[in-house]
């Protein structure tokens, strides 16, 4: 249910740019919302046991298709974004259909999707003449002669615009999560993740259910990638299309809580606070300290708190009154 709390929270968030003039805080919030959206997309699959290391590929496709079309052909991101999502979905189906058809699950699914990420990353690097290779690429600026925004190029020097775009995007992500959570599909997927054969025997079309989830998840991730590229105005294979970014998604979602609506968002808050905290607290130069801590915490989370922060809190809250 979209309750009163949600409306109030959203309204409060929407007021942030009016109240806060710090560009830094705005920047952190935008990044937060974009990642929270992407993590929510990932968690759609993760919560049903489809642990994908291939989302780096989807995000990379989204980001690169949009930027390349704009830079090379002058095609507006308004067309580029749907095309990028379409390509990501096509790739997701190409990989997902046989995977689900042939019952590739668990370790094997993770490794196949990992290979997909490597394929996309290697292609981006191999096509270095057009993509810039590992050095990355910047969308050609449309903000010339003092223009502060370009609708065709989806570029804007005012961070507030991106803030609202990211906010809407995140809300849509949460809405999608909720729609799926309340649909028949959720029951089907839950049954599948617990006992695939049993689910199939009671008439669940296993392949189709998994594929639907995968398509939605890939499309969201590609969209997030495109938005990330448009906002950052710079992408490279390591930040949008690597095993590293795939692992980052996995970590954030697990840290936040894979099985609750706001889990991925909490994960995004948590990881971003960690990164920014270390950056501000210790200084810019040690940029791998945050990853060291991430890695260690991922390990600790899985061993001691596999339900994530929010998952754990909610469990406590549910258990609380009963215990009292």
């Amino acid at each position: 249910m979209i309750g009163r709390n949600w409306i109030i929270a959203t309204a409060l968030l929407a007021c942030v740019p009016l109240a806060v003039s710090s560009l830094y805080i705005l920047h952190v919030l935008i990044t937060l919302l974009i990642w929270a959206f992407i993590y929510t997309g990932w968690s759609l699959m993760g919560r049903f046991g489809l642990v994908s290391f291939g989302h780096g590929a989807f995000m990379g496709i989204g980001a690169y298709v949009v930027t390349l079309l704009w830079n090379l052909q002058g095609i507006s991101p308004w067309i580029g974004i749907p095309l990028g999502m379409l390509l990501a979905v096509a790739v997701a189906v190409l990989i997902g259909y046989p995977c689900f058809r042939f019952r590739i699950t668990g370790h094997y699914f993770a490794l196949v999707t990992l290979a997909l990420t490597e394929v996309v990353r290697s292609i981006i690097i191999a096509l270095r003449d057009t993509t810039g290779g590992s050095l990355g690429i910047t969308p050609a600026s449309a903000l010339k002669d003092g223009a502060t925004w370009s609708l065709t190029a989806l570029q804007c020097s005012d961070k507030r615009v991106f803030f609202y775009a990211a906010l809407v995007c995140w809300l849509v992500g949460i809405w999608i999560w909720q729609r799926i959570d309340q649909s028949m599909m959720r029951h089907a997927m839950q049954a599948i993740s617990q006992e695939e054969d049993a689910a199939a025997s009671v008439g669940v079309n296993v392949t189709r259910a998994k594929l639907t989830i995968t398509v939605i998840s890939a499309a969201m991730t590609a969209f997030g990638g495109a938005l990330y590229g448009q906002y950052q105005q710079y992408i490279n294979p390591e930040t949008v299309a690597s095993l590293g970014v795939s692992l980052q998604m996995v970590f954030a979602v697990i840290a936040g809580g894979m099985f609750v609506k706001l889990g991925p968002t909490v994960g995004a808050v948590f990881t971003l606070l960690l990164t920014e905290g270390l950056r501000v607290g210790i200084g810019n130069q040690i940029n791998s300290l945050d990853s060291t801590i991430y890695g260690l915490m991922l390990v600790l989370f899985i061993i001691y708190m596999p339900d994530g922060i929010l998952g754990k809190l909610m469990e406590k809250r549910r258990a609380g009154p009963r215990a009292a």
């Binding site: 040690i286 791998s288 990853s291 061993i303």
Partner: peptide, 30 residues
């Protein structure tokens, strides 16, 4: 790392070693 998750879901075992990957790579950078 492995022994504590030996009896949990197989995917968790993949993820803890994935966490170790991030950790070891970043710690080596440091």
């Amino acid at each position: 790392v492995i022994r504590p998750v030996l009896d949990s879901e197989p995917i968790n075992q993949l993820l803890v070693t994935g966490g170790m990957l991030t950790f070891m790579q970043a710690a080596a950078t440091l």
